[in-house]
Computed example of a mutant assay.
Amino acid sequence: MANEEARLPREVTHRQRRRQIAEAVWRLAARGGLEDVTLRQVAQEAGVSARLLQHYFGTRHGLLLGSLQLLNEDAQLRARERVEALGSDLSLRETVRAVLLELLPLDDERRALHLMYAVYFVRFLTDAEMRELASGGGDGVKDLVEQLLVGAHAAGEISDLPRPDLDAAVLVASAEGLQGQMLLGQITAEAAIALIDHQLDGLFAVG
């Protein structure tokens, strides 16, 4: 294991190795699902020894959980970068829209991300620790949308907002439902975006 570690600079070895192994999990899962992925397969796919894999993640459960954590970190980072790239002159409505669109598979990167969450879905049903990790990300999006709605109401962009928590929950749940329909090819990206815009038009109507 020492020889393997020597291939990378000390300050980046841990982070890069974990990512290297996690990306191997994602590739295997994308090709054939998650349930039959073994430590040996992941080690071979990642080009590392089984001993090194266990050093970083321990058990198979630790490997799947750690890979999910890295997936979440990637998703949050990319979403933040895309929203920030839109600039600081966005209205609060436009900001809410941008956040909701991050929940849709609108390009290859987001499609791959949401497909991977779909692959993990069966594990979420049976594994409380993974389910908590997955639902934490969802609550974070809902809380952010709720804060933006409250800010929009204070700024006069929304005239009536008795239950911002429920409005935020409905917006996020709708976007997540559209996500699944898009992955299955049941709705186009244009139609999904139009539905989100329709919801926002009704919520942000001032009069």
Results as ranks from 00 to 15, higher is better:
M1S: 07
A2V: 13
E4P: 01
R7D: 07
R7Q: 09
L8F: 14
R10N: 14
R10M: 08
T13L: 13
R17S: 04
R18Q: 10
R19S: 01
R19N: 01
Q20H: 13
A22V: 10
E23H: 09
A24F: 03
A24K: 02
A24Q: 03
V25E: 01
L28S: 10
A29K: 03
A29Y: 00
A30L: 07
R31E: 14
R31A: 15
G32R: 12
E35N: 05
E35S: 11
D36C: 10
V37E: 00
V37W: 00
T38C: 13
T38A: 12
L39V: 05
L39W: 05
R40D: 12
R40G: 06
Q41F: 02
V42F: 01
V42L: 04
Q44C: 04
E45I: 01
E45F: 06
V48I: 12
A50I: 14
R51Y: 08
L52T: 08
L53M: 09
L53G: 00
Q54F: 11
H55L: 12
Y56C: 06
H61V: 00
L64K: 01
L64P: 02
L65K: 10
L65H: 11
L70G: 02
L70N: 03
L70R: 11
N72C: 10
N72D: 05
E73L: 14
E73H: 11
D74E: 15
D74W: 01
A75S: 12
Q76K: 13
L77D: 08
A79W: 03
R80I: 13
R80T: 14
R82C: 04
E84V: 14
E84T: 11
L86I: 05
S88E: 14
R97V: 01
R97F: 03
A98L: 02
V99T: 12
L103F: 00
L103C: 11
L106S: 03
D107T: 05
D108E: 15
R111C: 04
A112W: 00
H114K: 06
M116E: 05
M116W: 03
M116A: 08
Y117T: 00
Y117E: 03
A118W: 00
Y120P: 02
F121N: 05
L125D: 02
L125Y: 02
A128T: 02
E129T: 10
E129P: 01
E132A: 13
S135D: 10
G138W: 00
D139I: 01
D139A: 09
V141I: 10
K142L: 09
D143A: 14
Q147L: 07
L149T: 06
L149I: 08
L149Q: 12
G151T: 02
H153V: 07
H153A: 14
A155Q: 12
A155M: 07
I158E: 04
S159P: 07
P162A: 04
R163D: 15
R163I: 08
A169Q: 12
L171R: 04
A173S: 15
A173E: 14
S174Q: 15
A175M: 08
E176L: 12
Q179G: 01
Q179Y: 00
Q179F: 00
Q181H: 08
Q181M: 09
M182Q: 10
M182P: 06
L183E: 09
I187W: 03
I187L: 14
A192S: 13
A194P: 02
L195H: 11
I196M: 13
D197E: 15
H198Y: 06
Q199F: 04
Q199Y: 01
L200D: 11
F204E: 05
A205F: 02
V206P: 06
V206K: 11
